[in-house]
Amino acid sequence: MGDEEDTGKPRVLQMVRAEGADKSCVTFVLHNEDHTLGNSLRYMIMKDPEVEFCGYSITHPSESKINFRIQTKGGLSALEVFQKGLEELTDVCQHVLSKFEASMEAYKAQKDVNME
């Protein structure tokens, strides 16, 4: 079936772990993603003191997927760290969006006052 799951939907995320490896070292394959998510997520995950290594690579310029590797010190699994990084990145994006929207409203209100 290629890059589709049983549901017929394209895959978004795959988890690849070497045979015999523990849960502290995992490679995630993120489909339809690029440096925008890869670098920002890597930054968020590297801030965690439990993380020993985190990096990503673009497989090929003609493919829109990244290999995202996480290795922890063993206290947390790579999956837990990955989920935590995604949640923290979402929180940062929500914060930026709310500040932007508040600034736009303040600008519009100021512009309306100046127009009168």
Rank of each mutant, 00 (worst) to 15 (best):
L37F: 11
S103A: 08
Q94W: 08
F100Q: 08
N39Y: 05
L13V: 10
N39C: 13
E50P: 14
K99Q: 09
K23R: 11
D48L: 04
E87K: 05
V51W: 00
L79H: 14
K65R: 10
E87S: 13
C93N: 13
F100W: 14
R17N: 01
T7C: 12
S57G: 07
Q14Y: 09
Q83L: 07
M115L: 14
M44K: 06
G74T: 11
M1I: 15
H35W: 05
M44P: 06
E116R: 07
C25P: 07
A109M: 09
L76K: 13
V51G: 07
K108C: 01
A102G: 06
S57P: 00
E87L: 03
V113T: 14
D6R: 11
V26C: 12
K9C: 03
A106G: 07
Q71C: 05
E101Y: 00
M15A: 13
C25W: 10
E5M: 15
S62K: 12
K65V: 09
D91A: 08
H95E: 12
P49W: 02
Y107L: 03
Q110T: 09
T36D: 12
M46I: 14
P49G: 01
S40V: 13
S77F: 01
R42Y: 08
F28T: 02
T7N: 14
L41G: 07
S57K: 10
T90I: 02
D48R: 05
T27Y: 02
E52F: 07
H31Y: 10
M104F: 03
F53G: 00
E50R: 14
S40D: 12
E80H: 04
L13R: 11
L79F: 11
V29A: 10
E87M: 09
C25R: 15
G20R: 04
M1L: 13
P10L: 07
E5P: 03
F68H: 01
S57T: 06
S57D: 12
L89I: 00
Y56R: 00
L79E: 14
T7A: 12
C54P: 03
A78C: 00
V92N: 00
L30N: 06
V92F: 02
T59F: 13
D6A: 13
T59I: 15
F68D: 01
P49L: 04
D6V: 15
T59V: 15
I45H: 03
P10A: 11
E19S: 08
D112P: 05
Q110S: 14
P49T: 04
E116D: 09
C93H: 00
G74S: 06
Q110F: 12
Y56A: 08
M1S: 15
T27V: 15
V96K: 06
H31S: 10
K47R: 15
G75M: 08
L30C: 08
G20N: 00
E50F: 06
I70V: 00
A106Q: 12
V16Y: 01
K99S: 12
E80M: 07
C25E: 15
L30H: 05
E50Y: 14
M104H: 10
K84F: 04
Y107P: 01
L79N: 14
A21T: 13
E5F: 05
G55R: 01
E5G: 12
K108T: 05
S57E: 15
D3K: 10
D48C: 02
S98A: 13
E4K: 15
K65H: 02
I70P: 00
F68T: 02
M115D: 14
D91R: 09
G8L: 04
A21P: 09
T36K: 03
N39L: 03
E101V: 06
Q83R: 06
D3H: 11
K84H: 05
T72F: 02
